[in-house]
Design a protein around this nucleic acid. Structure first.
Lengths: 140, 140
DNA sequence: TTTTTATATTAAAATGATTACAAATTAAAA
DNA sequence: TTTTAATTTGTAATCATTTTAATATAAAAA
């Protein structure tokens, strides 16, 4: 399971397994959405009332560093995290701010001209779509 | 010229043409790069020492609202603006943070499956690449 | 040209997100 | 069980952005 995997990855990196960290793993791999720091903090605080935001920030940063979760920069308003590291795109409703995954053939590689590819060591890519979801199109 | 166009657009929208706003237009359409709020503020402050950051924020927000400039969400660290509204992708060097334009055939439209397209009114899209530029690959 | 008025600018304070720090706690090795 | 290094916590500091209210000004009206 994903949580076991993260525990193993942390151990391998010489990091300690704390209940707070495990709770963060559980939240990330149990929620299907794309939580913000506050989403995660709210959940963890429900189980560990004394948890500090710093712990959440630190753990997320460590996981990003290990390549186990990704930061989604689709909006400057919020910082969302994605525990799914398979290549995929995202779409955000500009009204309700909900983010959805889009799995698709990886076309964007082709979009990178040789002239650019020559001058960079490519490390990653992101594709974001913006729109109005059906619910927000109907409501006024 | 682009600056005249912006003046016209502001007039049409019933907004006033102030020297501070014109200076911001000039900076945006004279610099080829992707300035941050602070880049713009630094330049304007050189010409109007008493200019306030609020004015820069307000003007940029108005221009985004008019669809004349775009916000680049390539990184959470910085908020970059792009006066080029033609569809194009961006690549950022993760070390020196420089952002470059990538003009390419619009492939990413294909990447949006019918099932998603049906449920959204699509308003925009962004493609970002991350890499190490040649300069940063060499330097240590 | 002068007066008027609505809008824009400014400065300062408020807010919100993130980071830094030092003391107390704890996981895990010895 | 003891030890030790890493982690957590709470607080304070920092940084970006927004709000607010008073002042200044662009542009329309006289």
């Amino acid at each position: 399971m994903q949580i076991e995997r993260m525990i193993r990855r942390f151990r391998e990196a010489g990091l300690k397994i704390t209940p707070q960290r495990v709770a963060i793993f559980e939240y990330l791999y149990t929620t299907s959405s794309h939580p913000t720091v506050d989403d995660i903090y709210a959940y963890i605080a429900g189980r560990f009332p004394s948890v500090s935001l710093t712990t959440v920030y630190n753990t997320l940063q460590t996981m990003v560093g290990l390549g186990e979760i990704e930061e989604i920069a689709i909006s400057h308003e919020r910082r969302n995290f994605d525990p799914d590291t398979r290549p995929h795109a995202h779409i955000m409703c500009v009204r309700c701010k909900r983010i959805e995954d889009i799995y698709t053939d990886d076309l964007s590689e082709n979009c990178l001209p040789e002239s650019v590819r020559k001058r960079y060591r490519i490390l990653g890519q992101r594709i974001y779509f913006y729109g109005l979801c059906s619910r927000c199109t109907t409501e006024k």
